[in-house]
Design a binder for these strands. Structure first.
Lengths: 149, 149
DNA sequence: ATAAAATAGTTAAACATTAAACGATTTAAT
DNA sequence: ATTAAATCGTTTAATGTTTAACTATTTTAT
């Protein structure tokens, strides 16, 4: 998907890499999250449940930081999965500003029932790349995302 | 950001690569589109304008395919930038099902005024990678996105 | 101790996004 | 020619998302 933009070779390469990164990520994420609708989960809801499942109780602030989302977004997403009984919330007794967000038994059961399938989809998605290519892609992403060595 | 998941080495590497790809893309896209708010443009609105600017008149269906979005989404995004006078729409005379979406003079002027800055931001973002690294990242993304050699 | 600053979470407004139902138009099948 | 199927765009419902204003709580400065 080379851009139509006429620029210096440096600009053309940066734009080309940029758009390919964007497209590949979009399509990869789309393919690997399509099955979530079978469990009536949105990608955001799944991300929250998965974080709580693997990391344990977190505050909404910590969740927002882990997931790169705003606190307002957390309020909204948590409201839905709380209503469905997949998570529970209570005030932190030591500091009443904080909420302690926990995954419930029901939420844990749901993740238990589908996480293997989820991982299998990701392994399948990544299997077009060799182990060495995956390592190199991870390295380049780390360098790009952190903007540091 | 290695996952907590205990799996086979293949699973661990796939998950690690997957999450790094997702995070790097999110942060890169976030950094390179932050300036759009200076022009009262959302990323979706900018994507539409940029496509029309560089590709010329397109139908809403074609726009949706280029941008990997639904036709319902196109209806919504186009409504906003049409109201603002940045694009115009008319029915295709040969086939009345189609809309012909054009960027207006006003829309063109807006993109003219900020596209160089946009490109500069992307070049700056990508500049943490050498030219060879960018080429390799593009290659890996192409392979991953298309799921073909 | 008290006032100011900082922090956590909620809410509202605005826009994005999709799926599904829908109406309008065109094409294909017979 | 008529019917059936396909295609394009719109709308609605539901959810996601951010920013900014807001409340409540805690911490800091004096």
């Amino acid at each position: 998907m080379p851009t139509k933009y006429k620029g210096t070779p440096e600009e053309v390469q940066a734009l080309d890499t940029y758009i390919k990164l964007q497209r590949a990520t979009e399509t990869s994420m789309s393919r690997t999250t399509a099955h979530l609708s079978n469990f009536d989960l949105t990608t955001s809801q799944f991300a929250v449940l998965e974080a709580l499942y693997h990391l344990g109780t977190l505050s909404q602030r910590d969740l927002a930081e882990k997931l790169l989302k705003s606190t307002g977004n957390m309020s909204s997403v948590l409201k839905h999965i709380e209503k469905r009984g997949l998570i529970s919330r209570e005030r932190n007794e030591n500091d009443n500003r904080y909420m302690r967000v926990c995954i419930t038994g029901s939420g844990r059961t749901l993740i238990d029932s589908m996480f293997k399938e989820h991982v299998a989809g990701i392994v399948e998605e990544m299997s077009v790349l060799t182990s060495e290519e995956q390592a190199e892609l991870a390295r380049l992403c780390r360098k790009l995302g952190l903007r540091e060595t």
